[in-house]
Design a protein around this nucleic acid. Structure first.
Lengths: 115, 115
DNA sequence: GTTTTATATCATCAAAAGAGTATTTTTTAG
DNA sequence: CTAAAAAATACTCTTTTGATGATATAAAAC
C-alpha cells in the first residue's frame, strides 16, 4: 500500500513536466527511440535520457533493445493507476452536477423569480 | 491553450506530493480550516500553509474567510482537468483490453494448444 | 580492428521545493 | 483599545530537479 503510494507520487511527479507529458503523447503514435525523441524537443540527448529515466522508473514507459537503439513504449498501467486514484473524486463532481440539475429544475418550476 | 498547459503542470505537480493528496482526501469530507489540517499531519502550520498555497494556485482548492479562519474547500474542476487529460489515453488501455479479449477468444476456440 | 551510431553516465550549475523557526498581519473578543 | 487566536510571510537550510558539455560504453558497419 505504501508501495503504490510511493508509485503514485512518482507518476504524478513525472506527469508534472510538460516535456514528459509530450513524450507520453508522442508514444501514443507508437514506439520511438531516444534519438527520435531528441529531435522532437529542443533539448539535448542527455536531458531527454534523464526524462526517459524518470518516465521509466515511474512505470509510464518501458524500454527494449533493438541493435544500438532503445525503443520506448507507453505502458498504460501507470496511467490506469492515476485513473483509479481519480475514481472516488469523480463521484464528487457528479454530485455537484446533480446539485446543479436540482437547482436548474427549481429555476424552471419557478421562472417568475428571475423577473 | 498554453494557459491550460501551465495549469496542468501545476495540478500534476501539486498532486505529486503525498501530503497534498492527503489534504485533498480530507477535504472530500467537507471544509477544513488551516489549523484543523495542521492537526491531521505532523507538520508545522507554515508548512501546511505553503501546501495550501500550492493547492490553491493550482486550482485544486479555494479558500474563504470565516472570522479569523480561512476554511479550505475542494474545487473539483482541477481534478476534472486531469480526468480530461487522461481521456485520450483511456482509449489506449481499452484497445489493449480488446486485444486481450481477442487473444482469450482465440485460446478458447483452440484449447488443445495448451496441452 | 577501427570507425560510426545510439545511448548512458559523470561532473557541474542554477533554480525550485519542502521543511523549520521567528515574526507579522488580520480579525475577533473582552 | 488591548489581548488572544488564526493564518500568512520572511528568512534560512537542505535536497531535488532540470539542464548542460564532456566522456564512456555498446553494438553495428566497414
Amino acid at each position: 500500500m505504501n508501495q503504490s503510494f510511493e508509485r503514485l507520487n512518482q507518476t504524478f511527479a513525472a506527469l508534472a513536466d510538460p516535456t514528459r507529458r509530450s513524450i507520453i503523447g508522442r508514444l501514443t503514435q507508437g514506439e520511438a527511440t531516444v534519438n527520435e525523441l531528441v529531435q522532437c524537443f529542443d533539448l539535448t540527448q542527455p536531458t531527454i535520457s534523464a526524462h526517459l529515466k524518470v518516465l521509466e522508473s515511474s512505470g509510464l514507459i518501458s524500454r527494449t533493445r533493438v541493435a544500438q537503439t532503445r525503443p520506448c513504449r507507453l505502458e498504460p498501467n501507470a496511467l490506469k493507476a492515476i485513473d483509479a486514484w481519480l475514481d472516488p473524486y469523480r463521484q464528487i463532481w457528479q454530485e455537484n452536477y446533480a446539485r446543479l440539475d436540482t437547482l436548474l429544475d427549481e429555476l424552471k418550476t419557478e421562472p417568475e423569480k428571475n423577473k
